[in-house]
Design a protein around this nucleic acid. Structure first.
Lengths: 94, 94
DNA sequence: ATTATATATTCCAATTATGGCATATTTAAT
DNA sequence: ATTAAATATGCCATAATTGGAATATATAAT
């Protein structure tokens, strides 16, 4: 029960424990974006971006929406901003 | 510069991306504890706990203090609670 | 039906994390 | 100086993650 909950939380943190995926989260904080926009703006291979998005989605951090050929991703979590601010403080401190 | 910042944040998330370490963070939320108390309360080997604590400390999430033979660890971060509440919401949703 | 475009998947080698066990280090007490 | 107790470190096999390259799938347009 309880340990299972820690597992699930760890899963979420794991999804966020990668610089590329963090950069994607940051980019999505600006609003919904299609994969192509993300690939254009961040400098990584399209398959890499795609895999990163899927990992974030599986963790429940973002959601997707199809429109023709495009897939639009957006944040599904509202409290990232606060926590990121907190992290910035930590990074300043040490 | 910027990518380096994402690296560092990813490092913090990585430290939190493990159920044992999350359980330790939760336990420390109650207040400062020595390693022995953590080992007694959580059911893991002492070396495992010790290594987990060091990883959390390196990430800047906890701090330590020596007193005789004992080493006391405590949280160095104030915003975990809010973010954990947010995670709970996510976990309820999916 | 063919072609083009957007996105996802598979495969793979290299790196990194995990957790157990044995052992080392440090401090205090006798 | 020895011993005991608390904590940290090193070693190791296994498992998971990483990111690149090639390929597959799906949708739309001609």
């Amino acid at each position: 029960m309880k340990s299972n909950l820690y597992e699930k939380k760890a899963q979420i943190f794991k999804a966020l424990s990668n610089p590329v995926r963090l950069e994607i989260m940051d980019f999505l904080a600006d609003g919904e974006k299609c994969v192509c926009e993300i690939v254009e703006n961040l400098n990584y291979e399209q398959p890499h971006i795609s895999k990163s998005l899927i990992k974030l989605k599986e963790a429940g951090l973002i959601k997707d929406r199809n429109e023709g050929l495009n897939v639009y991703y957006s944040l599904k979590i509202c409290c990232m901003g606060d926590f990121f601010n907190c992290l910035n403080k930590i990074l300043e401190t040490n």
